[in-house]
């Protein structure tokens, strides 16, 4: 589903990704973790073409992404993205947020798009908020709307870039619950997160990054119980209390 080969990315003189190779199979759930500045957000943003890369090859959901990302729109909603800051459209109500891409990209007629969107909102237990504007919602609700918006396009892959980092603590769980439910449906997912409890429960594989390289990849139990690398152990110790 995703194939990354020798991905290199510079910001000016700084090398933020240094030869990343990663394969993700259909239905696989990957949690990307690592200290801040390790390049995990940059990696997912390169994978869906939001960032141009300096070198390397990326193939995702059947599309070969050009290095300058000029063909990024070919992905056309096949790769859903959930952002730390939600990035909902503030001038549209929830329903219009969900239907915009369906209508403009997929050409779905409005009535049909709205029916799909409402079904999706029901699933997210947000059916009552269809006419609300983003700013009238709590952070957790906004992020669930953002997830629903991406899911409306029936993506083959979902990328989550620190989806709970901007949330008040009491709202983190409702978003994690939605993501956990999604993971049970066989959707291919890459999640950048510091929520190690979620990682242990949901991930098929945990990818640990530091300094722009992948230091370690392992199943959750192996990763948490027998980390191979010093840096991994150090990271787990710092983040420790949330692990178990």
């Amino acid at each position: 589903m995703i194939k990354v080969r020798n991905l290199v990315k510079y910001y000016g003189q700084t090398k933020v990704l240094d030869g990343i190779s990663l394969d993700v199979a259909k239905g696989e759930r990957i949690v990307l973790c690592g200290p801040s500045g390790s390049g995990k957000s940059t990696l997912v943003r390169c994978i869906n073409g939001l960032e141009q890369r300096s070198a390397g090859d990326i193939e995702i959901a059947g599309h070969v992404l050009k290095p300058d990302c000029s063909n990024v729109l070919e992905l056309g909603g096949d790769v859903g993205m959930v952002f730390q800051q939600f990035n909902l459209f503030p001038h549209m109500n929830v329903l219009d947020n969900l239907t915009l891409a369906l209508r403009r990209v997929r050409g779905t007629p409005r009535a049909e798009a709205e029916a799909q969107a409402i079904a999706m909102l029901e699933r997210m237990q947000l059916g009552a908020r269809a006419k609300a504007y983003p700013r009238e919602l709590s952070g957790g609700q906004q992020q669930r709307v953002a997830i629903a918006r991406a899911l409306c396009m029936k993506p083959k892959v979902m990328l989550f870039d620190e989806p709970t980092s901007a949330l008040d603590p009491e709202m983190v769980q409702e978003v994690l619950d939605v993501m956990t439910a999604l993971s049970r449906e066989g959707l291919t997912m890459i999640v950048v997160t510091h929520e190690m409890g979620f990682a242990r429960n949901v991930a098929d594989r945990i990818v640990f990054m530091d300094g722009g390289v992948i230091l370690e990849e392992a199943a959750p139990d192996a990763f948490f119980d027998h980390p191979q690398h010093n840096r991994t152990r150090e990271f787990l110790r710092q983040i420790g209390p949330r692990t178990h």
Binding site: G77, F89, A150
Partner: peptide, 27 residues
């Protein structure tokens, strides 16, 4: 307009034209 608005559009596959007419200019 926050960069995230454009990024959300790109990730949904929304073309440059509709990005402008439906998302950026109304804001």
């Amino acid at each position: 307009v926050p960069k995230g608005q454009t990024e959300a559009c790109i990730s949904l596959g929304i073309s440059r034209r509709h990005r402008l007419t439906d998302v950026l200019l109304p804001q």
